[in-house]
Design a protein around this nucleic acid. Structure first.
Lengths: 145, 145
DNA sequence: CACGAATATTTCGTATACGAATTATGTTAC
DNA sequence: GTAACATAATTCGTATACGAAATATTCGTG
């Protein structure tokens, strides 16, 4: 095969490591605030689109509906969001952040992204290029199978 | 804050998407072969270092010991690996691939990496650069907290 | 040699994460 | 209008994934 296997393996491992690191960083902050990375992104999405259906939220989180369903339930148990059947379309649910959810998101928002500020030590140009190549890579991967 | 928040958010999402895609591609192949991405990487590591301790395997997989412990147990249940106490150090376990495990890995090895061959449509130069920038990024992330 | 420290693994509780199957509701074609 | 289809959400079973705590073994030091 023509594939430069070594490089591709390296790539897979690089991606594993990077996701692991970002998860770790979020987890550290999350502990103080009792929020997980996913919950923060969910609250962010719900702030932008309030209310959201399960499908819409799952899309924003890039997760399956079944995964998102469980996440919403746990967030409800924590009093961060509510869900109600849509009166106009009873298949649909409306998910909304509670005051507590909004407050918690506002409190931690700056912190979370600031935490990642050291990334800016990397050249802006390089970072832009990284995103471009990653986008190209994503496109190729999406075309597989 | 000086952080270009938008770009960093984009990066986090890009990484989420890329990992998700690679997982999806592995999962498709895995279904036929009854192997998961992690199991393939585990068998690969065990082929290179046979036997491995739990700690060594966890390191190779870049996973915690507790996670790896569960993975090994499930692989044992599937007859892919065995574990035994080390006679010279009874705290340690020796994890080894079975014939079935070795065979299954050999059968699927080429397939798995070939699947990712479309990635080579990207310039070799770009790919090398991607890995370099990602390595730099990883270093920065590891320095956080 | 004994006891505390270090090492190695496992168990537990919790949170992702997915696809398949199920349930409920709405839409469309006839 | 109703049967087939489409849409929306949930449930189930399984596999990651982690940290904290528990257990077992070995080592080091006095």
């Amino acid at each position: 095969m023509t594939t430069d296997e070594t490089q591709i393996k390296e790539l897979i491992f690089s991606l594993r490591s990077l996701r692991k690191e970002t998860r770790r960083i979020f987890a550290y902050q999350a502990k103080k605030q009792q929020l997980t990375e996913t919950w923060i992104i969910a609250l962010s999405a719900l702030t932008r689109k309030d209310p959201s259906s399960l499908d819409e939220l799952a899309h924003a989180l890039q997760l399956s509906n079944s995964t998102t369903s469980g996440i919403v339930d746990r967030m409800i148990a924590d009093g961060l969001v509510t869900k109600e059947r849509d009166e106009n379309n009873k298949r649909r649910i409306n998910i909304r952040p509670t005051d507590k959810g909004r407050q918690k998101y506002a409190d931690t928002y700056a912190d979370y992204w600031e935490k990642l500020a050291p990334v800016n030590a990397i050249d802006q140009t390089k970072l832009t290029e990284l995103l471009a190549i990653q986008a190209e890579l994503l496109e190729k991967l999406e075309g597989i199978k």
